[in-house]
C-alpha cells in the first residue's frame, strides 16, 4: 500500500527503489520502495532492529545500500551524491559535534562544509532561535546533553535543507528543546520542508506525521495516511503488523 499526494509534475522529495542492506548474514533492509512527496511528513515506526536507523543512514548517504538506489528532489544519489547531501539535514541521538571545540566553532566548521552563505549571521540567527546565544562560545564538552542536542539541531538546519531526517530525536532532548525542534521543522524557505522521522513514540509520530509507515524486520508492513488514523487504531495496527507492543 503506497500513499501519494502533491502535484505530479514536481519530482518526489525522496524516491527509493529496492533498497536492501545486508550486515554479514543479517538482512537489515529488504527491498524498500518509498516515494515521499515534497513537503510531506513521513513517520517511520518499528521495533528495535526493524531497520529504521539503517534506512535513515542510507538516505543521509552515511552508509551505502547493498543494492537498490534512491533519489532526492529527482537527483540520483549515485550520480549527484554531493547535491543530494546539500539537500539533507540530519538529527540523530548523536550530536555530530566536536567536544573540544566551542558550539560556534562547530557550527562554523559545518557551515564551511555546507558552503553556507553569511555564516556568522546564520549561526547567530539559529542560536537565537534556539535560545542558546549565551552558550555559543562555550566548549561543547562543557554543555549538558540537552544543550548539545539543541546545537545539533542548529547544525542540521544551518544550510536550510529541503529534507530533514530525524532518527529518534527525542533521545536526550528536553521538552523545551523538542518544542523548538518541532517549531523549526516545517521550514524557513517558501517551500515546506519534507520530514522523515524514525521513532518508537507512536503518539509523537502521530502528532507530527501526515503519512505513517511501519517497518518490521527490514520490510514495510504498513503505509498509510495520518488522517485515517487515531492513536488507538495506530496501536492496534502496530501490534498486528509487528506482533510487538510499543
Amino acid at each position: 500500500m503506497t500513499a501519494k499526494q502533491g502535484p505530479p509534475s514536481t519530482p518526489p522529495a525522496i524516491r527509493t527503489e529496492g533498497l536492501t542492506k545486508v550486515f554479514g548474514s543479517r538482512m537489515a533492509l529488504r527491498g524498500i520502495n518509498l516515494e515521499v512527496q515534497q513537503g510531506q511528513s513521513l513517520v517511520i515506526f518499528g521495533p528495535n532492529g526493524a531497520g529504521k536507523t539503517t534506512l535513515i543512514k542510507i538516505l543521509a548517504t552515511i552508509t551505502n545500500p547493498s543494492s537498490g538506489t534512491f533519489s532526492v528532489d529527482g537527483l540520483d544519489v549515485k550520480n549527484h551524491p554531493e547535491d543530494v547531501r546539500r539537500r539533507i539535514g540530519i538529527v540523530t541521538h548523536q550530536t555530530f559535534l566536536y567536544g573540544n571545540l566551542t558550539a560556534y566553532e562547530n557550527l562554523e566548521f559545518y557551515s564551511r562544509m555546507f558552503d553556507v552563505p553569511g555564516r556568522k549571521e546564520r549561526i547567530h540567527e539559529l542560536a537565537e532561535q534556539l535560545g542558546m546565544t549565551y552558550r555559543l562560545h562555550d566548549r561543547v564538552a562543557t554543555l549538558s546533553r540537552g544543550m548539545q542536542q539543541r546545537f545539533s539541531i542548529a547544525r542540521a538546519l544551518l544550510h536550510k535543507p529541503s529534507v530533514m531526517l530525524l532518527d529518534e530525536p527525542e533521545t536526550g532532548l528536553d521538552q523545551e528543546a523538542l518544542a523548538i525542534l518541532w517549531k523549526a521543522l516545517p521550514g524557513e524557505n517558501e517551500r515546506k520542508r519534507t520530514i522523515i522521522l524514525a521513532t518508537h513514540n507512536l503518539e509523537r509520530g502521530l502528532e507530527l506525521g501526515d503519512r505513517l509507515v511501519i517497518l518490521d524486520r527490514g520490510k514495510i508492513v504498513y503505509d498509510g495516511l495520518r488522517e485515517v488514523m487515531d492513536l488507538r487504531n495506530l496501536e492496534e495496527v502496530y501490534r498486528n503488523a509487528t506482533g510487538a507492543n510499543n
Binding site: I62, D83, R86, T92, F96, G99, M113, F114, Q148, R155
Partner: peptide
C-alpha cells in the same frame, strides 16, 4: 566520538 565522522560523511 559523538558520531562526528557521520556528520562529515553527510556533508556535501
Amino acid at each position: 566520538e559523538h558520531g562526528c565522522l557521520e556528520g562529515l560523511m553527510a556533508a556535501p
